[in-house]
Design a protein around this nucleic acid. Structure first.
Length: 983
DNA sequence: ACGTACACCTA
DNA sequence: GTAGGTGTACGTC
């Protein structure tokens, strides 16, 4: 190679992925072979070979090579085992294209270079260096930022898809640093795709600023102490060592022992017939024609080349099986049950130690493909009386999900090295790919009905304990096939009872926490986004690894967690408040509630008209059109352009346009803020409710089925989602109209029963406040009583404003009051709010004592308790950060109150259905919804009165006999045609 | 496609 | 001041 020679280095691996995602899907016509990326690749190569001078590269190559990754096992994994650890498998349609692209390269008569242990980027770096040393130039065909560190006066990059040259100025423009500092920048920011660690909170912009200021990374790390921003300084200092590793990871190796010398990359003339033969085989007709014309080959006379396609696991291509080799090495095993005593605490500790040490063996999972084997597993489960169970389906929505398969796991106590074995039973996996027929059933699956019949016997067997994670989901799926799971445990609920406040209770989090094991992410099995497939299109071997692992992990979690319930004395919380609620909620979800589409549609139209009219007024008043829904644009108009007073900033420095701010401006008589507040209300109601709710109407049941989460609050409350039916508007008349769309079926009524002031009653009970207890016993207006005590105003003829303030204080107490918060709520000075609180505590010293006692308990034990023994942990209550500590203190004060109320309604919910059934109301009265202190039923007209009395009775006595409340619980109930009138 | 900020609905 | 979920805008991968 000599001066003026020009080497093109094509990043083949990068191109494959980019082409696949950027280009429309293309398949070979005759057999559906996916070839979109191959087509893009061939077109680009041809263009570069024939017209490079006419593109923005502007030169014709004299040398050219296409470089590929060999495998993901490179020297970088030795430096940092997690490097590229989270890579999902390539999309199914891309797999066969890896080998095709290599064949394409050879068909073009070009060197195809890959080296074991090195990434394509390293080889490119090496050849670029060699070319420059030989006096030539190099152009790298790629847009990957990882290669930008190589850019210099003699080395350029070219983005073939955008026809854009990338030189030193372009790198600076995009990243804010010159190419030689790209390594430092990448080390600082890290790379989430390749799993290169960086400094948290530092992105490209911050990194560039820092490098500008300190010159380079070494200098930055040496002088990190001088950085002003607290968080940033701490993060950089804490990440020092990782950043050094990251620098090694992102630095390309320019001295790979390449086999081919530069001379071997010299461009040779095309072998027309060979190339045409390949292109014909790919059925790229227009390119075939162009190449034939240019090379003088007789396209008609040339046969399509035989092409081998590698569909499965290939020696090439990155991480086709990310499951392999990523299982953590066994930790210090220690002998299995040494030290195991008979006490639950010892058992729990020994189990935790044992299973954390025992690696998970995905290769040992079995795929059950015939009924006899399944019956064998079921028999084994019966012998043990214990089996872990998990379903695989087509949807996260249990009401829509189609069963695809299920997995089982069994425990062999005596098998020291392999105590858990697991299997997957595929049922409705599809064969083949997206062909026109949609793919029939894959072979080797048990007939659906036969498998379900066998499974039904097991799941409904009271003598066999079924263990699952988040069983409510599987329970519902099985219910829809006529199976009711009996005798179960749910590891999610066990964890929730044991460790509320200590992090999530999902399987991945629990597995990581207790087993030190990361289960295969769902994304890696089914893909994500545009490429996601439903589970029935996952290859059965992969599905087995994923599904059986879930059952395996669930069983291990149960073995670790279950003994802790007794050891930590919270068994009754689990057995009385959690486990029995699961079937109750499943039934409520399965029933759903009837929502009138027409009412919502009419409301939506009304809201749209009102919003449109307001929009016109707003644009007129503002003097220009803008996006009213953008707080940023709105803030700029109000406080920038119009210069209105009273602007406050949000914590990110934007103008606040919160309703409080706008209301203040509206109170000054300004029309614009008031229109905006109205517009917000209209569009909120429209988008969140009238437009969204109809989309949740189930196609078959024609009802709306929310999903309740039993374990996503810290306090014991439920949460509702998809849709959230716990936040349907009620405060304003406009909003309440939405509730009129929730209706009873003909011949029925909706019955709403809600606890009156339940949290204040709980407070009166737990804090033992004489005046409060007396007031509730006498049925006095509690807020008026509070106001009377505090301000010495008689209850008779009390001004509304006085009562409103007392009410805000009462709520404040429940929320762990602060002067800051109360001042905000009442729009008064902080000092005035402080005075109120002081006066309140003078009148109700017992409340102050209770709060101090609760905080001390949280500090001493790390948790607080509800009156039924539910524990809520506050691991950060001793934080040295004042804000964090105060927040935890307020939450700890609130938790026993909110949580006890939540426990009471849970108890009511568990009891209500058996009571109704015993009274012969089981068929006529159905519980549908729970909204924290309210239960909504659908009841036949004739049964409404009797049901109402019974429901009120159960709810008011729900704390008994576990706790005898020092104040009565009061429940208001009403039945009507819709939820608005019933409430 | 995904995450965060903001705003706002409920108890 | 407690506990949630969702829609929109907007920035980044």
């Amino acid at each position: 190679m000599k001066k003026d020679d020009h080497l093109f280095l094509i990043d083949g691996s990068g191109f494959i992925f980019r082409a696949f995602h950027a280009l429309p899907p293309l398949t070979r016509k005759s057999d559906g072979l996916p070839v979109g990326a191959v087509s893009g690749f061939c077109n680009m190569l041809w263009k570069l070979l024939t017209q490079a001078r006419d593109t923005s590269v502007g030169v014709t190559p004299t040398h050219l090579a296409v470089i590929f990754d060999f495998s993901s096992q490179t020297f970088r994994k030795e430096i940092y085992p997690d490097y590229k650890a989270h890579r999902p498998p390539p999309p199914e349609d891309l797999v066969p294209q890896f080998s095709l692209i290599r064949e394409a390269t050879r068909a073009f008569n070009l060197p195809c270079i890959e080296m074991e242990g090195y990434e394509a980027d390293d080889i490119i770096a090496t050849y670029a260096r060699l070319a420059v040393e030989a006096g030539g130039d190099a152009t790298i065909i790629s847009s990957d930022k990882d290669l930008m560190q190589l850019v210099g006066p003699r080395v350029h990059m070219y983005d073939g898809m955008k026809d854009r040259q990338i030189g030193v100025p372009e790198v600076i423009e995009k990243w804010g640093v010159p190419p030689e500092k790209m390594i430092d920048l990448q080390a600082l920011t890290g790379d989430s795709v390749d799993n290169v660690p960086g400094v948290p909170g530092i992105g490209p912009k911050t990194a560039a600023t820092l490098l500008e200021e300190f010159g380079d990374l070494d200098n930055l790390l040496a002088n990190a102490e001088t950085i002003k921003q607290n968080k940033r300084r701490e993060n950089i200092i804490a990440s020092r060592e990782l950043v050094q590793i990251s620098r090694q990871l992102v630095t390309l190796k320019q001295d790979c022992p390449v086999e081919l010398p530069l001379e071997a990359l010299s461009l040779e003339p095309q072998d027309g017939p060979k190339l045409v033969s390949f292109l014909k085989a790919m059925e790229f007709n227009s390119l075939t024609r162009r190449v034939a014309e240019a090379t003088g080959a007789e396209a008609q006379a040339i046969d399509a080349a035989p092409v081998d396609v590698e569909w499965g696991t290939s020696a090439h291509g990155p991480d086709l099986d990310p499951g392999a080799g990523t299982a953590p090495a066994a930790k210090q095993a220690g002998s299995a049950d040494v030290g195991q005593g008979t006490r639950p605490a010892d058992l729990a500790a020994a189990r935790a130690a044992r299973f954390a040490a025992l690696p998970i063996d995905r290769d040992g999972y079995e795929t059950i493909r015939d009924l006899t084997s399944l019956q064998g597993w079921i028999e084994a489960a019966r012998e043990r009386g214990l089996v872990a169970f998990d379903t695989e389906t087509t949807s996260l929505d249990a009401m829509q999900a189609e069963l695809v398969g299920f997995s089982l796991a069994l425990y062999d106590e005596d098998a020291k090295d392999k105590p858990v074995r697991a299997a997957y039973v595929p049922l409705t996996h599809k064969s083949g790919h997206d062909d026109l027929l949609g793919g029939g059933l894959a072979e080797g699956q048990i007939r659906f009905d036969d498998a379900l019949a066998a499974l039904k016997g097991l799941l409904e067997d009271e003598a066999v304990k079924k263990i699952a994670q988040n069983l409510k989901y599987d329970y519902l799926v099985m219910r829809r096939h006529g199976i009711t799971v009996k005798n179960f445990d749910d590891t999610m609920l066990i964890s929730y009872v044991l460790d509320s406040g200590m992090g999530g209770h999902g399987m991945d989090a629990l597995s990581e926490k207790w087993l030190g094991h990361q289960p295969i992410p769902y994304k890696e099995v089914a893909g994500s986004g545009r490429n996601m497939v439903t589970f029935d299109h996952v290859d059965i071997a992969r599905a087995t690894a994923y599904a059986a692992e879930d059952a395996d992990v669930t069983l291990r979690l149960w073995l670790v967690l279950k003994p802790r319930l007794a050891a930590e004395k919270v068994t009754s919380v689990y057995e009385r408040l959690e486990r029995p609620l699961l079937p109750v909620l499943a039934a409520m979800e399965e029933r759903g509630i009837s929502v009138d589409r027409q009412i919502l549609s009419r409301l939506s139209g009304e809201l749209a008209q009102k919003a449109a009219a307001l929009e016109d007024e707003i644009y007129e008043l503002a003097g220009e059109r803008f996006n009213i829904g953008s707080p940023k644009q709105l803030g700029d108009i109000l406080f920038g352009k119009m210069g209105l007073p009273g602007g406050k900033k949000t914590k990110s420095g934007q103008w606040s346009t919160a309703v409080q701010v706008l209301d203040d401006l509206a109170a000054e008589g300004l029309p614009l803020p008031s229109r905006i507040v109205d517009w917000r209300q209209m569009t909120k109601l429209k988008s969140t409710y009238t437009d969204a709710l109809p989309g949740y109407i189930h196609p078959e049941t024609r009802r709306v089925h929310t999903s309740y989460s039993l374990a996503s609050t810290t306090t014991g409350r439920l949460s509702s989602s998809e849709p959230n039916l716990q936040n349907i508007p009620v405060r304003t008349a406009e909003g309440r109209k939405i509730r009129t769309a929730f209706i009873a079926t003909p011949g029925h009524k909706l019955l709403s029963a809600d606890y009156s002031q339940i949290e204040l009653r709980v407070l009166a009970h737990v804090a033992d406040i004489a005046q409060l207890k007396q007031a509730f016993a006498d049925g006095i207006d509690i807020h008026a009583m509070t106001a009377s005590e505090m301000f010495g105003v008689p209850v008779e003829g009390m001004p509304g404003e006085v009562r409103r303030r007392a009410k805000a204080i009462n709520f404040g107490i429940i929320y762990g009051i602060s002067a800051f918060g109360l001042a905000n709520q009442l729009a008064i000075e902080r000092s005035e709010a402080g005075d109120y609180i002081k006066r309140y505590f003078e009148r109700f010293p017992g409340i102050r004592d209770y709060m101090e006692k609760t905080k001390a308990e949280a500090r001493d034990r790390g948790y607080v308790e509800t009156i039924f023994g539910r524990r809520i942990h506050y691991p950060e209550i001793k934080s040295s950060n004042h804000q964090v500590r105060s927040f935890n203190e307020r939450a700890a004060i609130n938790a026993p109150i909110q949580g006890s109320a939540a426990d009471i309604i849970r108890r009511a919910m568990v009891r209500i259905e058996p009571e109704l059934a015993a009274a012969g109301l089981g068929d006529s009265t159905k519980m549908l919804l729970q909204v924290h202190d309210e239960l909504i039923f659908e009841v036949e007209d004739a049964a409404a009165e009797k049901a109402q009395a019974m429901i009120v009775d159960v709810m008011e006595n729900a704390a008994m006999p576990a706790v005898s409340m020092a104040v009565p619980l009061k429940v208001d109930a009403r039945a009507a045609q819709n939820w608005d009138e019933a409430h």
